[in-house]
Structures are given as structure tokens and as C-alpha cells.
């Protein structure tokens, strides 16, 4: 474990807690893409299949359970909670995310570390996580100005993978035979997708104005 990875995991955890706070405090999920949340639930379930087979550490197991639990709870909340689900505007959350699932799965069938069930699903989860934010970014652009908690949620979600890139650079430099090319390349793509969001986030922060994404 290194500081970059720990910072990344904590930033990821904060992003999920901010989202839970927003939904719980405002009893509303307006501005949140259910499709992105469903993609994240798939990412965590597909990636953490080794939860019961490979014990890495208490920290690793606890964090996996938290990520799976929170992502499923958020999807449940947005689909079934009698108050929250009425605030979900499905007519603006129209990204065809099943194509993302299919595309990432096909890519994982061809590009993976080892052709085993667990490794192919792991690669699938890495590719899917890289593009999972797209429905949310599209929804942000469509819905113009959104509430602050949603903006913070997307910001922390983008920042966590940037920390992971520093972690991979650090591990590559300090550990012999460390090569996580699939995760590193996908992580770069994932962080790049946030680039314009980060730019407009910084501009809005500098001008102390609300975030305005160009439509």
C-alpha cells in the first residue's frame, strides 16, 4: 500500500459518501444518472468476485464490501425507494449504456491478462469503469446547472483514478515485475474523460460561480 493508492481509495469512498449524503439529505436523485450507478454496480460485482477466494487484507475485504454495498444501495434507492425514485428524471438519462457493457465485455474477451473466468471479468470491470461515467457526464451537460453535491461527487470520482495513476507509476518504479498495463491504460482513458469536467470545475471554482458545462 502506498500513499497514492490510499488517497485514491479514500477519495473514491468520499465520492460514494457524498452521493449517499445528497440522496439521503435531499431525498432526491435529480441530476444523478441511474445508468452510471448501474454500471458501477456491475463494475464492483464483476471485479470483486475474488472476495471470498483471495484474502488480501482486512482493509481490502472491508472496502470491497463497502463499495459493493453502497453501489447496490444507490441503485436500489434510485429504482425502488418510494420518495427518491420519483425524482429520477429518466427522460434525460438516455445514454445507451448497454452498448458500453457489451463493448467492454467483447474487449475483455480479447484483451486480458489470462483467459480465465475471473481474469476476463476483471478486465471487463476495468474497461467498464473507464467509461461508466459517460451517462453521468452527458446528463450533467443536459441538465445545465446542477446542485453542488452532484458536482462534488463527480469531481471526487474523477480525482480517485488520477491518484491511482500516481500509484501505478510509483509501483512501477519501486516494484520489480510490476505491470498493470490493462488497469493503467484504462485508468488514463478514465481520467482523460473527466478532463473537460475538471477544466470547467476549476473555472467555476476560480470565478466562485456555479459549474456551467457547455451544452
Amino acid at each position: 500500500m502506498n500513499i497514492f493508492r490510499f488517497a485514491g481509495d479514500m477519495t473514491h469512498l468520499i465520492s460514494i459518501l457524498v452521493l449517499l449524503l445528497k440522496i439521503y439529505a435531499t431525498k432526491s436523485c435529480s441530476g444523478i444518472s441511474l445508468k452510471t450507478q448501474e454500471l458501477y454496480a456491475i463494475v464492483f460485482v464483476a471485479r470483486y468476485l475474488d472476495l471470498f477466494t483471495d484474502f488480501i487484507s482486512v482493509y481490502n475485504t472491508v472496502m470491497k464490501l463497502v463499495f459493493i454495498g453502497c453501489s447496490l444501495a444507490i441503485v436500489w434507492c434510485m429504482r425502488l425507494h418510494r420518495v427518491v425514485r420519483r425524482t429520477y428524471n429518466k427522460d434525460v438519462d438516455t445514454f445507451r449504456h448497454y452498448f458500453l457493457v457489451l463493448g467492454c465485455f467483447l474487449l475483455a474477451l480479447f484483451v486480458h491478462e489470462k483467459f480465465t473466468f475471473q481474469e476476463v471479468l476483471w478486465a471487463f470491470s476495468i474497461y467498464l469503469e473507464a467509461v461508466a461515467i459517460l451517462p453521468q457526464l452527458v446528463l450533467l451537460q443536459r441538465s445545465g446547472n446542477v446542485d453542488n453535491l452532484t458536482v462534488q461527487y463527480v469531481f471526487f470520482l474523477g480525482a480517485y483514478r488520477a491518484f491511482y495513476i500516481l500509484n501505478w507509476i510509483y509501483r512501477y518504479l519501486t516494484e520489480p515485475h510490476f505491470g498493470r498495463w490493462i488497469a493503467s491504460v484504462a485508468g488514463l482513458v478514465q481520467t482523460a474523460l473527466y478532463a473537460d469536467f475538471f477544466y470547467y470545475y476549476f473555472i467555476s471554482w476560480k470565478n466562485n460561480a456555479k459549474l456551467q458545462l457547455p451544452a
Partner: peptide, 10 residues
């Protein structure tokens, strides 16, 4: 061939 190292990252 050797098993890829366990995924110790989240």
C-alpha cells in the same frame, strides 16, 4: 505459466 499476481488493488 505463472499465475498472475493476486489483485491487491480495489
Amino acid at each position: 505459466c505463472l499465475q498472475p499476481p493476486p489483485k491487491d488493488e480495489l
